[in-house]
Design a binder for these strands. Structure first.
Lengths: 248, 248
DNA sequence: CGGGGGGTTGATCTCCTTCAATCAACGTGG
DNA sequence: CCACGTTGATTGAAGGAGATCAACCCCCCG
């Protein structure tokens, strides 16, 4: 429960699983070498907090494997997830010294961290990094705006369907499945985490998942294993255009 | 109502009101000259649509004066505002060919537009532009995440208070008022636009504004002119830390 | 066996939506 | 100048979606 191993995980950038998707995606081998000098790996266990909001941050980094969440909390305890960090996603904001959100590992997690100030120097001297970071940030902004529509205007059922379709889509792209047959995946989040993501209570999440199951939109084995027999149907339930997100 | 004048508004970058806040903030005079060659001004009247979601975009640009909104709409008509564009804010995404959101002028609006492909070329050749855009995008992402908390977890009253405090703060910083005395500003949005921003109905917006007025949190002259006698009180109502957002 | 974390389900309550009437300000045309 | 329509806003009454409170289940693990 407590042991946080800060071991350096033997890892060559060349065969890093996120080599072509993370901030370093555009770097050439020279640049990778310079990054290598300021990087180190950290491992977190499921449930561990990576950073507390307000804490001084002396690193930025990428999720290598596992899943983490970005959450905001009000004084009275209400919490809202504002980001779901998947492999290749970037953590931290160059130029900011303290964390703005809580970052929590929801599964076992490996991060590739860069010491903050040398990384910031590299950002200005290495356009490839800044360019890639801009691209990733714009994508995140789009995702956040999509999520604002979900939070502001969708019903509980639509919210659940939206979350499921996002996870399904992401999982499909990760495993290179064809999106045609029935999709199968595991929910990486507890009911409570889903509630925090969707601005609902965990009870409502549970009820709506049951309802979608009862209506045959999804199949459930256990509490986490989901099968989507008809993706278009799910997208319809989400209130999205069913014409599919081939996506820009 | 219909006339859209595409006149070139005589304007030197040097005395442009957003010279030091927009994408061009870090450009030197050489770079400004190159930007000058690909830029043109456009003027829109209040209520006019600047771009429809899905439309081909052949430009990107900055808001010079006035206010515009970024909104998403579902097939059944539900709409959610996902951005409020103020002077110096950037419109459009380099690398994307069609608009992802509707952009609507809520007041008379002047935009400084750049032809898209030459701008994209400049982005790669001119780090100052990409750097500034990254900074601005990170700020927007923070704002979007703040807004996700508002949408997902705050009550109607808190939502209204949050919106008012954001507008108040922005207005104060614009007019260099001291934030201590009572703040005074005009609402740049209709009740309906506020509702679209907050994920509420316009009736609820109206009721909660009346309630805040009744409770002395704000004073109203007419429907748009707001006085905030005690900013800390308003922040309390918004559910924010009252210690103020001096901000990172 | 006990205990705790995660999940489901039920009963009740409440905050916000929905539907609807009304109002003030404004412009337009007869 | 007044009747009329329009747009933005306020207010009321009724209903419902989701929150809240609570009981209970399942499963794993010490």
């Amino acid at each position: 429960m407590f042991k946080e191993r800060t071991l350096t995980i033997p890892h060559e950038c060349e065969d890093c699983p996120i080599r072509h998707k993370a901030v370093c995606a555009r770097c050439d081998s020279d640049e990778l070498e310079r990054l290598d000098e300021i990087k180190y790996y950290r491992r977190f266990e499921a449930g561990q907090t990576v950073i507390w909001s307000g804490d001084r941050m002396d690193f930025v980094g990428s999720v290598v494997s596992g899943i983490a969440t970005l959450t905001q909390t009000m004084e009275d305890g209400r919490t809202q997830m504002v980001g779901l960090l998947l492999p290749s996603d970037f953590v931290g904001r160059p130029g900011r010294e303290s964390a703005a959100y809580d970052v929590v590992a929801t599964t076992d997690l490996v991060m590739c961290c860069f010491r903050k100030s040398p990384f910031e120097e590299m950002m200005t001297s290495t356009p490839h990094i800044a360019q890639r970071l801009l691209e990733m940030t714009l994508d995140e902004l789009d995702a956040a705006r999509e999520w604002m529509l979900v939070l502001g205007r969708k019903t509980a059922r639509e919210k659940i369907a939206s979350l499921l379709s996002i996870i399904a889509r992401r999982d499909a792209s990760l495993h290179m499945q064809n999106a045609e047959g029935s999709l199968v995946f595991d929910l990486p989040l507890t009911r409570e985490a889903m509630a925090d993501y969707l601005g609902l209570t965990l009870e409502t999440v549970s009820r709506q998942i049951s309802a979608l199951k009862r209506d045959g939109v999804i199949l459930l084995e256990g509490k986490r294993h989901v099968t989507v027999p008809d993706m278009d149907r799910l997208l319809e339930e989400a209130g999205d255009d069913a014409d599919g997100g081939v996506f820009a």
